[in-house]
Each structure stands twice: as C-alpha cells, then as structure tokens.
Design a protein around this nucleic acid. Structure first.
Length: 421
DNA sequence: TCTGGGGTCCTAGGACCC
DNA sequence: TCTGGGGTCCTAGGACCC
C-alpha cells in the first residue's frame, strides 16, 4: 500500500502559521513578480478565486472581500517543507518516505491492516499539525495513482481516506472524472472525452494496448496498470540529484538593454552554478534563452516563443566563472537591438559527478577555482542575500522582479524572527 | 498595464555507422 | 542500370507534474 501526504494550500498555510489572525480568512500567495495566484486558502477558493489566474484579474474580488495577498516567500516555504518531511521521517523511518514535491510525500505503508492504516494516518496528521502548524490530507491505496485519488477525496472529508478494498476503489473510480486523475492533463482530457471516456472507471477498463496507442506509449500503460491496482510507478529513493538545473525569471518590467540582459543572465548562471555545486555535479552543456515581449491581442495567454542557443563546454565544470563566460557570449548572440524582452534564463544539462575534487592533481588551477567557489558559497550561505557576487551580475538590477507583499523570513533569518509583544 | 519557475519522462525522426 | 538492413545516438518537442 502507498500513502500520500499532502499539505493543504501549503504556501497559504505557511503564511498563516505566523499570522494566526488569518486563520479563517481568505489568503492567496502570488508567483514571482506578483503575476499569478499560485496558492489559495479554502476561503479564497470559496469566494471564487480561480487557480493560477493572473493577479490583476482577481484584484476586484480580492479587494472586495479583503483577501490577504502575499508575495511568494520561498525561504519560508522551503524551511517549513523541510520540517514536515523530517517529521514524516521521524515517524516512519527515512527509507519509507519519498519526497515528491515541496508539499507532498509518498509513503511506503505495506503490511498494515485497514484499521491500522486509519490509526497510522491519524497519528501522522496530528503529529505534523502539532509539530509544524501545517494541516495535511492523507490518501492511502494500493498504488500511487490510486492514493492520489484517495487524497483528492479526503479533502472533501476529514482529511483521511483509505481505499483498502475493491468496493471502495470501484466506487471512488466511478465518481471521479477522468481529468481528475494524476497523469491526465488538458490534452489527454480532450482526447478521452472525444472517445466517450468520462470517468476514472471508464479509463481503468480500457486495454493497455489502447493506452499505448493513445496516451503516450508506456506512460499510458503504467496509468492503466496503476488504476487496476498494479504498482507501475515505483518509489524513487534518490531524487536528490537533478538531471538538469535551470534558473529562469520573468523581468519586473520589459527590458530593452543588452547590459541588463547580461546582468540577469550572469545572475541566473551564478544561482544555477550554486545549485550545481550543492549536488556535487558539473555541467557539460549550458544553454541560454530569452523571450521577447510580444504585442499580442490573443484572447488566451501564451508564453510566446523563446530564442535559445547552447554551448558545449570544453570540459564539464561547476565553476561560476567558467559558466558565465559562455553565457555572456550567448547573450550577445541572442540579443537583438530594438526588441523588448520579458524573460530570460539558463539551463545546465549533461550533468556528471564533479570529479574536480579528486582530479585536482592533474589540473591544479581548477582546484583553486573550486576552493574559491566553496568560500563564496559558504559566505553567501551564512550571510545570505548574495554578499559576494561576480561583477557581471551587476548592482543596479533594473530587471529585478516585483514583490510588493513579502512576509518576513521568520524561520531562516535572525533579524526577521517572529516577535511576541 | 499587469499571466511563475521549476522539473520529469517519453517518442519520433534524423544523422550516422557498418 | 542498379542503391539494404539493422543498429545506435542524439535532439527537439510534447505531455505531464507541483
């Protein structure tokens, strides 16, 4: 059996832990740049604020009902997430917990009776709420896909749903629309509806062959298996090392200057290189892209094409300066004078273990570079806020994003600690 | 006026090899 | 005049997730 533990309106819950006055009130959290709504409390959903809609469109509603809006505070959410995950590991043991996202974890819970699972779920739920202040919902079922379904149902009940026998599972499948299944997105939903497949139950009864043809090959087959109670999506014990690392941002305002673009790309490169070193990898490919701001009258928002290029590095590296150099060259290539840009980013791929630490006997110059990076990382980690930067990252930062409603980083900055008066 | 920022996995098809 | 068949590797792009 698999369980999934999911934090309710996670970002909103994090803000509320330190603002108990907002307990029963509508709260939303905005994306970077205060562009989109990315989390809504139950109360905010109830007054009709849509998911991932643009903030400006919801603004009338937000003002009318006095909804509390926060800019995203990833320092706070990251730390709260760590607390929740550590709590789970304390209860079940490290190797039973697979952290799936910032607010979700799968648990391996085989070998329990149905009644024991209920008790266990209650214990987990209560402990997390007590230790961290975050409320969670728990779904338990034979496979990951079914446990996600159980979790969905639990949100409408008391936060715990165990689908332990066939009757319960069948009933759950029959009362769930096909697009509410984990793994069915917008495209597949349309396709399935065209075939007259409306519920999870309809989908479960299709053949694997059909799924192979129509739902993305082996992905579709896995889905059908999972709905039928056969585990096809395995626990992944080691999600710590990424296969690619990206840092991309929308600009606060459209940018027209090459110098600004280069500052931004240098900053993103430095950030990505930091992530790279944290997992002790080196990158063999760096790509850069910019997204021009289009004058569109299209009714639906589209991201527009991005213009990109890449550089294959002479040897894999994790040194910021060795990554910034090609990044700057690519920025020169991508930039067109007279155009406005709204976004830029870099992606590091072809990641390999950073052998520089051992190989320094033959390339002594590089090991000095590695020590320098370690020092910079340590200083930036202890002092925070990028005390030490590369000159190309700039100091003006005309392109920086807007964040008008930022809450204090209560748990990760001494000078922003919660105060009781 | 204003619409995020990460990631993963998979497939098709081209390039290339013998 | 006639121009195979099988395999690998790589990339672009699609689909999904939170």
């Amino acid at each position: 059996m698999k369980a999934i533990v999911d934090c309710n309106s996670f970002y909103c819950s994090c803000e509320r832990v330190f603002r108990p006055d907002l307990e029963q009130k509508p709260v939303v959290v905005l994306s970077n740049n205060d562009g989109c709504i990315i989390a809504r409390s139950k109360e905010a959903k109830a007054i009709g604020i849509g998911m991932t809609g643009p903030y400006f469109k919801a603004k009338p509603l937000i003002e009318k009902y006095g909804v509390e809006a926060f800019s995203s505070n990833y320092n706070l959410y990251g730390d709260m997430s760590w607390r929740v995950m550590e709590t789970l590991k304390t209860i079940l043991g490290e190797n039973k917990v697979e952290v799936y996202s910032v607010d979700e974890a799968f648990l391996d819970v085989h070998g329990f009776t149905s009644a024991q699972l209920q008790t266990l779920a209650k214990e987990i739920k209560n402990t997390i709420e007590k230790w961290t202040g975050v409320k969670v919902s728990i779904g338990i079922a034979p496979t990951k896909t079914l446990s996600k379904l159980a979790n969905r149902i639990s949100k409408k009940q008391d936060g715990i749903t165990v689908l332990s026998d066939d009757n319960k599972i069948i009933h759950a499948l029959q009362s769930t629309s096909v697009n509410d299944i984990w793994g069915i997105g917008h495209q597949y939903k349309e396709k399935l509806l065209n075939f007259g497949i409306y519920t999870a139950w309809d989908l479960r009864n299709l053949s694997e062959e059909w799924a192979r043809k129509n739902l993305g090959g082996v992905v579709g087959i896995r889905l059908i298996k999972e709905l039928n109670g056969q585990e096809a999506i395995v626990m992944d014990k080691d999600l710590t090392n990424k296969k690619m690392i990206a840092t991309t941002r929308m600009f606060g305002n459209a940018v027209t200057d090459l110098a600004d673009i280069k500052e931004a790309i240098a900053t993103y490169t430095a950030r990505a290189a930091e992530k790279l070193r944290r997992q002790q990898s080196a990158a063999s490919i760096i790509s850069a892209f910019v997204v021009p701001k289009e004058n569109t009258t299209a009714p639906h928002f589209t991201h527009g094409p991005s213009i990109s290029t890449y550089t294959i590095l002479p040897q894999p590296t994790s040194l910021t300066n060795e990554l910034i150099k090609p990044a700057m060259k690519m920025a020169d290539q991508l930039f067109e004078a007279g155009k406005k840009y709204k976004k830029a980013g870099i992606v590091l791929s072809g990641l390999v273990p950073d052998s520089c630490i051992q190989a320094n006997l033959f390339t002594p110059g590089r090991s000095i570079g590695r020590y320098l990076m370690e020092m910079i990382d340590n200083i930036n980690f202890s002092m925070r806020d990028d005390m030490v930067k590369f000159a190309s990252s700039g100091t003006k930062r005309n392109w920086k994003m807007r964040q008008a409603f930022h809450s204090p980083r209560y748990t990760t900055r001494w000078n922003e600690l919660y105060e009781i008066s």
